[in-house]
Nucleic acid binder design. Structure first.
Lengths: 194, 194, 194, 194
DNA sequence: CATGAATGAGAATTCATTCAT
DNA sequence: GATGAATGAATTCTCATTCAT
């Protein structure tokens, strides 16, 4: 299995750093190879083509990202706490790994081609987790039962995504993780008085 | 003034259509010129370079977009109604002009370079309008006075943006404009019961 | 006659300045037109094409240059004095008009095309003057009668040309005109002792 | 070291031929690549850009040219013989390689930009050799001790350069090498009788 | 006579991918 | 498995010249 050989991981990690430091369009295969300490041709023993590297970056890193969120939310026992935990973990993981945050929030979005489809596919389990929390909240009578789940999920994901992107673009001048409770309050209670 | 000569508008409009139909990376200058009915070289009498076309597309179209929203919200007399109007107009204008929606939600985001900075600059007045509505809501005692305005603005913008992007990517299978009141309710009241 | 109309001279003079200041390759027709204070299209009422401007610059300016040398040398009555006068006038005229010196010594040589042939054609009368002085010197028994006239002319012209070019390229840090007698001595007496 | 790999020399040699045959401005990179038997992209593994090819052509070919002259003059033991040898070698080498003569005398002079600076830099050692011969002649009491060395060098170089250029432009109708002694005589003894 | 907006041909360079060693 | 030299397709922009006004 190629994914278990050491150079596979080396190349993935090199790609994240190279893209974060140089930007999507200036990240040539040869640069990634150099950073990974392998020859250009070696890349093609592990990946079908350049796009396959990027897809794999997203799959590997997002896979872990989602796994961690699922693991953490599962330990909570009501929808509201699960939602808070999801927000906290979302912010925490991206705040911890700035390279990853830059790559996912800014750089990888510059791709067209299949990568954008793959991003959606990879993100699907995450969106499903959000959906499940919403549904659970309805059952637990914590959230309104007439909520339009996909729409609520778009609100939640859109809010988190926009918040992280702003933080990255503002050069991480403030503490992202501390915003979690405030974001959670906004989502659950809205902005209206009372 | 170049911007008032007819070919300027012709080229801008041709660019929107070409980008929407071919995607950002497959939109050669020669394609835009052909669609606009001018010679390749004519493009360069009106625009400094290719990127300048894209920046101008965004400035012109977003300028109108924002103007329309400001105009409409100003006619309402409380923050909540203004917010609803802003959401309605946001959805309405993009639903009305699918080419524009594709370009702003998907294609233009693939650029790096100056365009991304310009996008932020152009968007600024829109974000300011949102901020003003939030502040007004606090004064009118409709919104909680301790709201973190930038964060709320990120929630609002992130939610609208994600909602429109989903609608575009789902091939506009549903009515975007009808979601406005629901989105407004989510933002004002949140998802919690009571 | 076009050559007598004021704009003809305006354009020629503008061309010399534009080429001297911007270099041959950066001297667009539009720049020359602007400096001359006429519209781009007006250039084509006076000149067949861009090359015709350059040819005319050389013809007009070199015509005067040669005329002045012929006039001055004719006033002398032996070949040696004529040669000295020729050198003095050659240096004097180019030292007086730096723009012209830059254009003739550096910029116009970057052309290929017909201009290079024309340069030779325009220069012909000058080379003929040199030939005549050499022949006269033989008759006057001042110069050796077995001199290879074309070769001597090449030595004279090559020496003057190289000297002026060096002076232009060295930013005219020294007095070109003062070199005339020394150059004359070298040509007439050579470098050998005795 | 790139300069020692065979394709480096192939490309340099192809460039000389292509420029000589097509002229400076009609020498596209793709033409040079084709003549060299390599892909267009391969050029850029060996040269930074098109101008770098031209600079390298001049450096390589002129380097050899000068080396040969230094080698030959060093075998002579007085300044006058060294000067004669320099003239003979100068004419000999360019007469032997017509492509090179066309390129150095006509085509490369059409460039502006860095190439012209490089030409001067590369030529410097040659001009230094001439200066040394002049100085040596003074010491040996063969040349006048009050000679202005830079000026004499300009006479010598200007004469040789003009002579070769004339020969190239006159389609090499006569034997350039046979002119060496005559040119040497003119430089050493001048044109005056006695 | 004069204008200046419009034209459109033409070339350098990058970089993902291959394959002989 | 690993290497890295070689490949070659694909696109922006400039500027001399024209011609309708």
């Amino acid at each position: 299995m190629k994914k278990n050989r050491p150079k596979y991981k080396q190349i993935i990690d090199a790609a994240v750093v190279v893209i974060a430091e140089n930007g999507y369009h200036a990240s040539q295969v040869s640069k990634i190879a150099k950073k990974a300490g392998v020859a250009d041709g070696t890349i093609y023993l592990y990946f079908k083509n350049k796009e396959d590297i990027l897809i794999s970056v997203f799959e590997e890193k997002m896979g872990q990202f989602i796994e961690q969120i699922v693991y953490s939310t599962n330990k909570k026992d009501n929808a509201s706490e699960k939602l808070l935990t999801l927000i906290e973990e979302h912010f925490h993981q991206l705040a911890e790994d700035l390279h990853l945050a830059i790559v996912t929030q800014l750089e990888l979005r510059q791709s067209n081609t299949d990568l954008r489809l793959t991003i959606n596919k990879v993100l699907k389990p995450y969106l499903d987790v959000i959906d499940e929390i919403i549904e659970e909240g309805k059952v637990e009578n914590i959230f309104r039962e007439n909520l339009n789940t996909p729409l609520v999920r778009q609100m939640i994901f859109g809010t988190l995504d926009e918040t992280v992107t702003n933080w990255v673009m503002k050069d991480q001048k403030y503490n992202l993780e501390k915003l979690a409770t405030e974001v959670h309050a906004l989502i659950t209670s809205g902005i209206s008085k009372k």
